[in-house]
Design a protein around this nucleic acid. Structure first.
Lengths: 207, 207
DNA sequence: TGTACATCAGTGAACGCGCGTTCACTGATGTAC
DNA sequence: TGTACATCAGTGAACGCGCGTTCACTGATGTAC
């Protein structure tokens, strides 16, 4: 895991900030491989990028800032994946399916990144004073609420409380995303059976 | 967190194994407080118990063994809490409610312990070769399956696939348990609304 | 076109720290006679 | 009842390691004249 990479060629003048992206990418890779945020040490990141450890301080004030950048990037990627998946459909039920499917896909392909994302809270939510700023993920969640409401408006869902239903769908998706990754030996039922229950039945979608 | 405790009096002859329980208790406390299994260091545990670090080696072969013992104990506690809650009821729907409620209660009162429990898998499931031994938690899960089946047999649930329904209920409970702890600033709907959806609606319980 | 120089991108050595683990040990406790 | 002694429950010092961070530095790159 901690194999030393070949040293990286020095950036040209004015291109120093390219290193920042490389650092975030390396930290993300380590997180994905180890699944342990404590393994994303400053020195491990530096080794992976192929630079010396102090070079990181030109771009990040401390180790913690690297992790925050990693999670901000990951959260942005998640939002993008959701938006893109939803926008490929027009039927409200299909949009709901696509969004929930993309959510589970993201978690399946980057399980450790996904886990740490919600364990620490996007954009370091944990350390924010409560009630001061709304969570960055609220936008994403509101898309889900709107999706369920759209189904109800189109007569495709029996939902009368889109917010509560969306909450139920979300927590179920989250639990499924995590447990599927953590317990691969569990005798999971076919994926579409679980998906139908937590993404459609909880949303009140009529068959 | 790492405050030095008063040194602990030496055990009497033949009572050396009492220290083992104290070590597990201290490690559990550190895990509950920090929520980070990496914080459960051998030396931190020793400080907390009030002994020197090498004393731990009389009871555990290495640091990892302490964590395994902590999680085995926690898993046992969870099973006990579930069994006890279910056994106080006779009506099948009430038993289902009680079991799911006890599950969420356990996670709410010991959020970090709960999280690490499923993140590492009970009894070190992760390191077991796949398919060799069934997960220890399968018994607990089968109780849930049986509970849903009992509701269906009593005509109180429309479930026709208790296993798949139980899976959906479980992942939803898990997601709710985790997210409620991780994102306390989220504008959660009233708890019973979420509970009804993920514990009853997913189980096909008829109102 | 040539050269002095400021700036930029990054380095190497060092610091103090807490860690897991090992080793030889100590001193109180109970027991055999 | 008294005493020698084996055993038990732990200790203190030390090891090598990787960590985050600091410091003074270096050498290539581009620019001003």
């Amino acid at each position: 895991v901690n194999i030393c990479e070949a040293p990286r060629p020095r950036n040209r003048r004015g291109e120093g900030s390219k290193l920042r992206a490389d650092i975030v990418a390396a930290a993300t890779a380590i997180l994905d491989e180890t699944g342990n945020e404590d393994a994303v040490t400053l020195r491990a990141v530096a080794r992976r990028v192929g630079i010396s450890a102090p070079s990181i301080y030109a771009h990040f004030p401390d180790r913690e800032a690297i992790l925050v950048a990693v999670l901000e990037q990951a959260f942005e990627d998640l939002i993008d994946a959701l938006t893109e998946a939803i926008d490929t459909e027009t039927d409200p039920v299909a949009r709901l399916r696509a969004g929930c499917g993309a959510y589970l896909n993201f978690a399946e392909r980057r399980p450790e990144r996904y886990r740490v994302l919600f364990q620490r809270g996007p954009t370091g939510e944990r350390s924010s004073s409560p009630g001061e700023k709304p969570p960055a993920g609220l936008d994403a969640f509101n898309i889900l609420v709107g999706g369920i409401q759209a189904c109800a408006d189109a007569g495709r869902s029996t939902s009368t409380d889109a917010f509560a239903d969306a909450t139920a769908v979300w927590v179920a998706l989250h639990g499924y995303a995590l447990l599927r990754a953590e317990l691969p030996t569990f005798p999971w039922p076919p994926s579409e059976q679980v998906f139908d229950r937590i993404a459609l039945q909880l949303a009140g979608v009529t068959s």
